[in-house]
């Protein structure tokens, strides 16, 4: 199955870095969103998105709220979600897992780590 990623981050720089990293590891199809609200709008408008990579700290709708919204939506709930964030405290990680993210990366990350986590998610799907 061809993957189409939704890259969600309020930092333009980070969106570019995630997109570049995806290209480096062989994935070319992605769309971007600047916060959770825009992400939800893109998800409802584009049925071909089948993987979400999201930041946590974003204005309006945070990454965690996005995860909760996606998981509570019957149409979207099965989309894998990888959280990429600066938050590396144990409580944060546990909270994200409780919200049902599939995997979690702490910034700064390398393309290799990104590939590893995507592969792990796909293998367990």
């Amino acid at each position: 199955m061809a993957l189409k990623f939704l890259v969600v981050d309020d930092s333009v720089t980070m969106r570019r870095i995630v997109a570049n990293s995806l290209k480096t590891i062989g994935y070319d199809a992605f769309v971007e969103a600047g916060d959770g609200r825009e992400a939800l709008s893109k998800l409802s408008g584009d049925g071909s998105i089948n993987f979400i990579i999201t930041d946590w700290n974003m204005p309006d709708v945070s990454g965690l709220d996005l995860v909760k919204s996606v998981r509570s939506n019957d149409k979207l709930c099965k989309i894998p979600i990888l959280m990429v964030t600066t938050r590396g405290l144990k409580d944060d990680i546990v909270e994200a897992l409780q919200a049902k993210v599939n995997n979690y990366i702490v910034k700064p990350f390398t393309p290799q780590i990104l590939r590893e986590k995507i592969d792990q998610i796909l293998a367990s799907a």
């Binding site: 700290n57 309006d60 600066t86 938050r87 590396g88 979690y104 700064p108 780590i113």
Partner: peptide
Amino acid sequence: KSFNEDARYDRGHGKQELVDNIINEN
């Protein structure tokens, strides 16, 4: 509105290892 006051630039693997351990435990 949105920031993590504990954000640190750390290229060590400690934080990611903590994440991996918690995920594996989970």
